[in-house]
Computed example of a mutant assay.
Amino acid sequence: MNVDHFSNWPFTEGEAVKTIESYVNDVKGFQFYLQEKLKDIPVLSRFSFVRYKEHLIKEDYAVSTINKKINSLKVYNDFLTTKEVINEPFIQLRKDKIKY
């Protein structure tokens, strides 16, 4: 299931258009990272998400930016779970967000 399917989903859940664009851009960034860096690893997994988060930290992204990206990926994760593309969530906001 590609990002185009996802781009319509938050709208039906009552999200603002700007938020949808932000979610989609964050998901595309995650997918680009996976294609470039983790070619041999399952794309949608806890491991790939943690590697991406570590990459963002290493690249010196602001904590607020990383947390926004994590939130976007959590929404995408919820979408994939709802559509039964994955069996269980691989992102947990409480555990994954970075503390200030």
Rank of each mutant, 00 (worst) to 15 (best):
I57G: 03
N8P: 05
T82R: 03
F30P: 07
N25E: 09
D26C: 13
E88N: 08
I91K: 03
S22G: 11
I98W: 10
F90R: 02
E13I: 00
R94T: 14
V50F: 11
L93G: 01
K97A: 06
Q35N: 11
E88H: 07
K53D: 13
L34C: 15
V50A: 13
P42L: 04
F30M: 10
G29T: 14
S72G: 10
S48M: 10
I57Y: 03
A62Q: 14
D26Y: 05
I98T: 08
L80M: 08
F49L: 09
L38C: 13
V75C: 04
Y52W: 14
E59T: 15
H55D: 14
F49H: 09
N87I: 00
Q31T: 02
L73M: 07
V85L: 04
L80A: 03
L73P: 13
Y52A: 11
S48P: 11
L34R: 13
E84H: 03
D96E: 11
N2I: 00
L38A: 12
N25H: 08
E36R: 05
K53S: 13
F90P: 03
D26F: 05
P89Q: 03
L34W: 08
N25F: 06
K95M: 06
E59G: 12
F11D: 08
I86N: 02
Y23P: 10
E84D: 01
Q92M: 08
R94L: 11
E88V: 08
N8V: 04
D4V: 13
K39T: 08
V17H: 05
